[in-house]
Amino acid sequence: MNFHKITGLVTAFIVGIFLLFPCTGGADDVVIITNKSVSADSLKEEDVKNIFIGKVTSWNDNQKINFATLPNGDEIHKAFLKKFIKRTPEQYSRYWKKQIFTGKSRIPKSFQTEKDMLEFVAGTKGAVGYASTSQITDDIKVLTIQF
């Protein structure tokens, strides 16, 4: 197989991907929520990503970050990953499996429903999660995100 054949194969592969499987949009009305003990009122987009991939583990006041997620099939989870982490649910799941099977981290706390997530964030010091805007209650704090 010569160079031109390889180039042709790769080109066909990439073009085929975008012709056959165009990317679809997702919901954007997802916000970052925290427990009221968290002193921060805003975060940079990059900070959100680093928290949810486990690279940042404490708030500026040294309080431990307790972050939580929703399951892969959840629409809010998909919207959160697309908006803040820039990864698909499968990529995010594989990232965390790599962490736990190489001894680098434990698996993130995960809840089956948004309601459970909200209860966890409201009742746990240093907790951070995400929710749709329609689910926001007074016992949690919504952070401003700087994009």
């Binding site: 592969f13 991907i17 499987f21 892969n72 698909t88 499968e90």
Partner: peptide, 16 residues
Amino acid sequence: SLSYRFTYWFELGLYY
């Protein structure tokens, strides 16, 4: 290498 996930259950990859 290149890999692309077409659906939540199928991924295709190639490398040289």
